[in-house]
Design a protein around this nucleic acid. Structure first.
Length: 741
DNA sequence: CGGCTGGGCCAC
DNA sequence: AAACGTGGCCCAGCCG
């Protein structure tokens, strides 16, 4: 190609221009570099003031120190935007620097791990070696066990290696079985067959960290682990529910004084089977069971001096692990056809509502965007003046309900938002979670809440709206038998406070809220029945007492003035003196001991109870009473689950869910009312309180749609007049939820 | 496209 | 300044 000579010509002016530009660039770079570091201390101060999670705090600290030591500095490619302007140093950038630091350290850490590889860590690559190890294992009564896998999905991923620690022999092995490497490895299926007698031996006790995960993984390969004696993750929640991280390596660092790198600190996002150097795999994996064992010893030491917590662990949490495994394995069947039909209907309604909204507010609005809605309502339409003083200019339901009085489009928006929530989060999302066996396998976590309640995720089966429950069904020929503790928490309030008035009401089988309302306001019970404002006020009020709700919020909830709410609380405490004394006692106890105790002596530590910050302290005071009630309810439900699990074993039923005060099982639809009574009895007598328990039991082919026993036909029937279906259409559900204005 | 955060909201 | 406890998930919007 010919060069264009005209462009090659160099004039003096060109040279000067170029030099000037160069100077300018250098100057700009210097200026930027100065700007990049100028505001950095202010930025750090700002970041330090943010409410950072414990793990973020750790990371930020590391970056800060590295920066001050000159080990790392802002990356210009991160600190300067496209137009060449210096961006303010943010928490996000700091966290990115942390990732960079980690990346830099990774090789060093792995090299170190190899250097320090203990003599008693064994990489098992031959059958003779495996035989030798198994011979040693057969002399042990307890071992530590762990699996390495291709990922975290226990219904899709696979085992790539197994770690075992033998405590008395002090031998710690890793058996790689599916790494992507040319190094010698044993065959997974044969290894599992060789280990099977030991893994399934109830008398060979096992210690694991997050046992549920490994048990699921072994089940994927046809092995049902027995004899789980201790789970260091589950136990950690008993020993310190405020622990910021329960990852094994973090606990080892904190409690064993053994600084240990987490998986991603060493390998990032590389899945374990991609680790080709098996000695690296050994160093990491054998350390897992070794640390698990040491953590077990450490925890035993503390459980020895905390006998109540030992009982909570061994009598409730540990046996519950197997129950949860079974429950998650069973899964929940989704009625896909129904979900599809409902989805179609909802999409139609959503589209219609959207068309209306566009007429009201314009075509180019995303009605799911709080930012856009806020601009329209508060900047364009200036509706903020209609909000009561003190109410934030929000686009949440509360504010919109007020604004709906002043703009007719807003009630449409309320309906739209409620419908979108149901559709997006549930009706449309749930079918996508169905696994290859046609079921939803949500996760139930027994050790992830500070009060001891279960949490649930992927999907969360504990927050399914009533309207949505109908798309969950029982397998053919079975019903969903479920029982929920009626007024579980108020009963516990009566139990703990010893309030004679509350206890008496429950013992006489009266409706507590009606009785209490009549007593408090000196009204005849006929005026405080179901649906009366007095009963509602009492119900909300008792809840408020348990949750420590302030009078402002209570007033808002009940639609009364703050003075009236205040008056109610005063009256309530004057009448129920035991309740008042008990609540005050909880705070006192917490101040003195730093924790409160629930049923069986499970603890909720409240380190903030003596904080000088009033707001922080008050929160801890509310938590004190709430934790006793909520935590004791959780214990009660967990005990009931253990007993229902035994019942299930006897009857061949399968537990499928727990929702705080509710337990659900799949049972053949040939069960009789006698079976149902047995189920009810099991729940009611799981725990004996000072007040009787009550449970509402229902059998249903679809969750929430109870069927009745037809005594003549001797079967469960969905007879026209009898079936209790929550709602037929989304509209009815919304009306019931009070969303449609 | 994945990670992260804020606003909002579902359950008990 | 903040006064309703315990959770998890969706969407928007921003980041790389």
């Amino acid at each position: 190609m010919l060069l264009d000579r005209t462009k090659m010509k160099l004039t003096m002016k060109d040279v000067e221009d170029k030099e000037a530009a160069k100077r300018q660039r250098a100057q700009a770079a210097q200026e930027r570099s100065k700007q990049m570091h100028d505001g950095i201390m202010d930025a750090w101060r700002k970041i330090a003031k943010m409410k950072n999670s414990e793990s973020d705090t750790k990371k930020l600290k590391r970056v800060y120190e590295a920066m001050m030591a000159g080990e790392i500095s802002r990356d210009p490619s991160d600190a300067i935007d496209k137009r060449g302007k210096v961006k303010a140093f943010s928490k996000a950038e700091a966290l990115r620097l942390y990732a960079k630091l980690e990346q830099r350290d990774r090789d060093k850490k792995i090299a170190e791990l190899l250097e320090k590889l203990p003599q008693n860590y064994e990489l098992i690559q031959t059958w003779a070696h495996l035989d030798d190890f198994i011979a040693a294992m057969s002399k042990e009564s307890i071992i530590a066990l762990d699996t390495e896998t291709t990922g975290l999905d226990v219904f899709a991923d696979e085992i790539v290696g197994i770690s075992i620690s033998l405590p008395s022999a002090d031998r710690h092995c890793y058996i790689p079985v599916a790494h992507d490497t040319d190094e010698p490895q044993l065959n997974r299926e044969i290894v599992l067959e060789r280990l099977r007698p030991y893994l399934q031996d109830n008398n060979l006790r096992k210690v694991l960290h997050n046992a549920k995960f490994d048990i699921h993984m072994f089940i994927r390969h046809g092995v049902r682990v027995q004899g789980v004696h201790f789970d260091t993750q589950v136990a950690m929640q008993i020993l310190n529910e405020n622990e910021p991280s329960k990852r094994l390596k973090d606990l080892a660092t904190v409690y064993l004084g053994e600084p240990s790198d987490t998986y991603d600190a060493l390998f990032g996002k590389t899945p374990f089977h991609k680790i080709t150097n098996l000695r690296v795999a050994l160093a990491y994996a054998a350390k897992d069971t070794h640390l698990t064992w040491r953590l077990y010893r450490f925890m035993q030491h503390h459980l020895d001096r905390l006998p109540k917590l030992r009982t909570v662990y061994y009598e409730i949490e540990n046996p519950l692990i197997d129950v949860v495994v079974e429950m998650e394995q069973e899964g929940f069947i989704l009625d896909i056809d129904r979900a599809k039909a409902l989805g179609k209907q909802m999409r139609k309604e959503i589209e219609a509502l959207e068309a209306q909204l566009k007429q009201h507010f314009g075509d180019d609005v995303n009605f799911n965007s709080p930012a856009q809605l806020s601009k329209i309502f508060y900047e364009d339409l200036k509706l903020g003046k209609h909000l009561p003083p003190g109410m934030k200019q929000s686009t949440d339901k509360n504010a919109l309900k007020v604004l709906a009085e002043h703009h007719e489009g807003i009630s449409v928006l309320l309906e739209y938002k409620a419908l979108m929530k149901l559709y997006g989060t549930y009706i449309d999302a749930l079918p996508k979670q169905v696994k290859s066996d046609g079921r939803i396998h949500g996760e139930f976590k027994q050790d992830s809440t500070v009060t001891g309640r279960f949490s649930s995720k992927n999907p969360n089966l504990q927050n399914q709206p009533k309207y949505v429950r109908q798309i969950f069904k029982a397998p053919p020929g079975m019903v969903l038998l479920s029982g929920d503790f009626s007024q579980q928490e108020p009963r516990l309030l009566a139990h703990f406070s010893g309030e004679p008035l509350l206890i008496e009401a429950y013992r006489q089988g009266k409706d507590l809220y009606t009785t209490a309302a009549a007593e408090l306001w000196g009204l005849p019970e006929s005026e405080c029945g179901d649906g009366s404002k007095w009963r509602k006020m009492m119900k909300t009020g008792i809840l408020a007492v348990m949750y420590g709700t302030g009078t402002n919020t209570l007033a808002k909830q009940l639609g009364i003035t703050v003075e009236e709410a205040d008056d109610f609380i005063k009256k309530f405490y004057a009448k129920y003196k035991y309740v008042k004394r008990w609540i005050e006692g909880n705070v006192e106890f917490a101040r003195k001991h730093g924790y409160v105790e629930m049923l069986m002596g499970r603890k909720r530590r409240l380190p903030e109870i003596n904080s000088r910050d009033e707001w922080v302290r008050y929160r801890a005071e509310r938590q004190a009473t709430n934790a006793i009630i909520q935590g004791s309810a959780a214990i009660m439900t967990k005990i009931a689950m253990l007993k229902v699990a035994e019942l299930c074993k006897r009857k061949g039923w399968k537990m499928v869910l727990t929702v705080h005060d509710e337990i659900g099982v799949y049972a053949p639809d040939t069960i009789t009312p006698a079976d149902v009574m047995e189920f009810e009895h099991t729940m009611l007598h799981a725990v004996e309180l000072k007040v009787p328990s009550k449970s509402d039991i229902e059998a249903a082919y679809h969750w929430g749609e109870s069927v009745n026993w037809d005594a003549k036909a001797k079967q469960w029937k969905v007879s026209d007049g009898d079936v209790v279906c929550y709602f037929d259409t989304p509209k009815e559900a919304l009306a019931a939820a009070g969303a449609a204005v």
